[in-house]
Design a protein around this nucleic acid. Structure first.
Length: 801
RNA sequence: GCGGGUGUGGCGGAAUUGGUAGACGCGCUAGAUUUAGGCUCUAGUUCUUAUGGAGUGCAGGUUCAACUCCUGUCACCCGCACCA
């Protein structure tokens, strides 16, 4: 019998989607389950195998949950603002709206062809006016709560195209389109004050159920450290330089200071500094260095001594020099450091190069050779009041000392920076702020939202790094919502991270036009029970969305502080050559071709069977056939079923084992072993003369989440009228997991020599006797003295000779 | 450099409160069915100089017993990267 996958799959897809079988029901009495997968960017290339892997995990979980009696919300949507569509629009002149709609349509079709159990009625599209209206609304709330502000930053700028470039467009320091050297241009842009939430974002991780590395990556991104601020008086001025240090205990070893090239003190004391020009030169040179060069040159420290300013080490009143060097970053800490060359590799290199004093303050190393940095413990020397103290005690003592003398204080610092929230592009949410000469920056009235993207024919960015919107007079010119006078709209648009920072909220109430979502619905559905997505989004996207969520919680819009209960991440599918799939390498697998030839069930099954879900694995074209064979075997089993509603005697144990393992493996993201166990069971069933109806129905239920089309079809063919979607998930009998007869290994000196079948309840003594009676074991015992016999019930007997 | 992870047959990968290494799939070999191919079925498939011996990146250690624990070391992957 040939299985016509095309016909069968179409039939069930039609049934599911036309009858809205997967619709989530608000306020159902069933327990709710919210499974969330990262929504795709609807590119023209459509769905690839990576998408299928990304969605399959929670597809399996969601289908299982429905069978376990949950009311499941498993939605999908589109993160559709972004560069590729915009670039396509620039090239072809076709409006991004059109392109986006087209791509979404195709993508949706492809998702349905794969048989995903999404609730397609809740689909959101971040570029939809009814959606970005609320993205803009959130921005206004952030602005009103002083969490959105404007400040200067450096952006990647192509002087030839006169356009601001994203990091992706300026890789290697060259403009993606014209290959011109990219420069750093100073620009006034929007920032979101995510740093205000640094500690909460860190604390919120405590209750997140996730892999250690996912947690650690976020922790590193937030980058909390504790130390102290210390003020160093600057001679000939009445000011001081504030530094941040995690090692205030080494203060007596601070023999010079280094400030970042952009540090404001240079401008401030321009007239006192004798070599101002040299410093400005250095700053310009530093700015020109691409990121690449900065890393490459990391070993070769450069800097310029400030002539005219020196500093006083506050603990010993020594006068020390101040340098400008680009190994100190303006964006971290205070942009100035106290250099302790004896115990910091960078300071040591710098000191050696410029012949500066190096004072050892922690015993144990040889500072004539290299910096001694293994100093988390240790004893202080050359440090006056700190001498003989441990590092830990010295830290406490010096911080107290600094605080008493009013020259410093205990400080916690975070590596995370505020979120630069801007793009100078057309295809993004307009930032709903109005610039009025009289009233300053004013948010648009909420009833006027959305601020729509004007419909135009040209999408190219304006010159000098301005947004394309800046050229559109009807858009720019407006009236001030406060004074009614003439004013101008903000023309920057939001970055792609905006729409994706709250999309999971909209799924709970996607058509609401009074609020981003109804509070009671949010209360019913949140938190997201399980969120799966790419490892690459674990820091930025997850942290950004958590930040927005915490903020929305603070203003009473959402019912919980943290959005996600559990987070997992899938591994990449590589090309069959082991490289990342890419068009240029020609190793891209088109999932639709496989659906066509083998069916969606086969593809889904293979993608989950391919390897550990959280690890990256190469594609293997012939492996697909194995998945299909497994399905064919299930199909053929139908011919052998009896009417019995009990498990077959010979299958009872393995049936129960399989139910247990498959159920557990799914929860533990071990889809590959779940499928392996199902294959083992099916192989066993194939060997039987006949299988009972219950055997067969059970395997269909277990296979259903993985290969739902085939499962539904066979379920129907054996006479069931209700579909499988809400059938009850099988349960196992824990007394039927182990056979009464088991195999025991007999080993001599740890090497297995024989295997015997014994009754499960065979006693230790009996096992020992059986082992000694084994002919095969005897050969290895003969003529030797038995020194010890170890009997592990149900496992093995080890005879030591 | 720092942090995390991985290393097991020809390939993807199973197995860690220490207890029969290689489940499951691919590939391969032989046979059956077939006009042939495909499909399907049966048997086999870690290596080997084969009644034995060796074997989970490498070198040691603990143990009756180690893929699993400990010490050292190498390789690869991911993330961060002059973070003070």
């Amino acid at each position: 019998m040939e299985y016509n996958h095309q016909e069968v799959e179409k039939k069930w897809q039609k049934h599911w989607y036309e009858n809205k079988v997967f619709a989530a029901k608000d306020f159902s009495d069933k327990p709710k389950y919210y499974s969330l997968v990262e929504f795709p960017y609807p590119s023209g290339a459509g769905m690839h195998v990576g998408h299928i892997r990304a969605y399959s995990s929670l597809e399996i979980v969601s289908r299982k949950r429905r069978m376990e009696g949950y009311n499941v919300l498993f939605p999908i949507g589109f993160d559709a603002f972004g560069l590729p569509t915009e670039n396509y629009a620039i090239k072809t002149g076709i409006h991004p709206r059109k392109v986006t709609d087209q791509n979404i349509k195709i993508f949706t079709e492809q998702l349905k062809q794969t048989g995903f159990s999404f609730d397609f009625d809740r689909t959101v599209d971040t570029t939809d006016e009814d959606y970005y209206r609320w993205t803009q609304w959130i921005f206004i709330q952030l602005f009103k709560n002083n969490l959105a502000y404007r400040d200067k930053t450096y952006v990647n700028y192509c002087p030839s195209c006169k356009v601001v470039l994203s990091n992706e467009e300026s890789q290697g320091g060259k403009c993606d389109r014209c290959d011109t050297e990219v420069v750093q241009k100073e620009k006034d842009v929007w920032f979101l004050k995510i740093t205000k939430h640094a500690e909460r974002l860190l604390q919120g991780l405590k209750n997140l159920d996730t892999l250690p590395r996912i947690k650690i990556e976020q922790e590193n991104w937030i980058g909390k450290s504790s130390g102290a601020h210390v003020d160093f008086k600057v001679t000939n001025t009445n000011t001081s330089l504030k530094v941040y240090t995690t090692r205030p205990d080494t203060l007596f070893g601070a023999t010079f200071m280094v400030i970042a090239p952009e540090h404001p003190i240079i401008e401030e004391y321009k007239s006192t500094i004798k070599n101002y020009d040299a410093l400005i030169n250095y700053k310009e040179e530093a700015k020109k260095k691409t990121e690449f060069e900065r890393v490459e040159l990391a070993k070769d420290k450069t800097g310029v001594l400030i002539d005219g300013l020196t500093a006083i080490n506050p603990v010993n009143n020594k006068e020390i020099p101040i340098f400008v060097a680009d190994y100190v970053m303006i964006g971290y800490g205070t942009g100035a450091i106290m250099a302790v060359p004896a115990h910091d590799t960078r300071d040591y290199e710098f000191a050696t190069k410029y012949n500066l004093e190096i004072i050892e303050v922690i015993k144990g190393g040889d500072i004539t050779v290299e910096a001694y940095t293994d100093t988390y413990e240790g004893i202080l020397v050359n440090s006056d009041i700190l001498n003989e103290l441990t590092v830990k005690d010295a830290k406490e003592k010096i911080i107290k000392f600094l605080e008493e003398k009013n020259i410093g204080e205990r400080t916690t610092n975070y590596k995370m920076k505020d979120w630069a929230f801007n793009r100078q592009r057309y295809w993004g949410e307009p930032i709903p702020i109005i610039h009025c000469d009289k009233c300053g920056m004013v948010p648009e009235k909420e009833e006027n939202l959305p601020i729509r993207l004007p419909v135009v024919d040209k999408f190219e960015p304006a010159e000098d790094g301005e947004s394309p919107l800046a050229n559109i007079e009807e858009f720019v010119n407006t009236t001030c919502p406060v004074c009614g006078g003439h004013a101008k709209r903000e023309t920057d648009t939001m970055p792609q991270w905006a729409g994706s920072s709250w999309y999971f909220l909209r799924y709970t109430d996607p058509k609401n036009n009074k609020a981003l979502a109804d509070f009671d619905k949010l209360k019913y559905w949140l938190q997201v029970d399980w969120y799966n997505g790419g490892m690459e989004h674990v820091t930025r996207h997850v942290i950004y969305s958590r930040f927005w969520h915490q903020f929305l919680f603070d203003i009473g819009v959402v019912p919980c502080e943290e959005p996600y209960k559990k987070r997992t991440a899938q591994g990449l599918i590589l090309g069959s050559d082991g490289d990342k799939m890419s068009k240029s390498k020609g190793n891209v697998v088109n999932p639709l071709e496989i659906i066509e030839e083998f069916g969606a069930d086969t593809l889904r099954l293979y993608i989950l069977f391919i390897g550990d879900y959280e690890q990256s694995t190469p594609w293997n074209a012939s492996g697909v056939k194995g998945a299909r064979r497994f399905l064919d075997k299930i199909l053929r089993l139908k011919e052998k079923i009896t009417t019995s509603n009990e498990f077959s005697k010979d299958l009872k144990i393995i049936m129960n084992q399989t139910i247990k393992q498959v159920s557990e493996d799914i929860e533990n993201v071990k889809f590959n072993t779940a499928i392996a166990k199902l294959m083992t069971l099916v192989n066993e069933m194939v060997k039987q003369e006949s299988v009972s109806r219950k055997d067969y129905e059970t395997i269909l239920k277990l296979v259903n989440p993985f290969a739902p089309h085939l499962a539904e079809e066979m379920w129907e063919q054996i006479g069931n009228t209700e579909g499988l979607v809400f059938e009850q998930w099988p349960t196992f009998d824990k007394d039927s997991l182990v056979d009464t007869v088991i195999e025991i290994a007999i080993s001599v000196n740890g090497k297995v020599r024989d295997k015997i079948s014994v009754n499960l309840n065979t006693t230790k003594d009996e096992l020992q006797a059986l082992a000694l009676a084994s002919e095969k074991a005897k050969q290895f015992i003969e003529g030797k003295e038995i020194r010890k016999i170890i009997v592990v019930p149900k496992k093995l007997v080890n005879i030591v000779v």
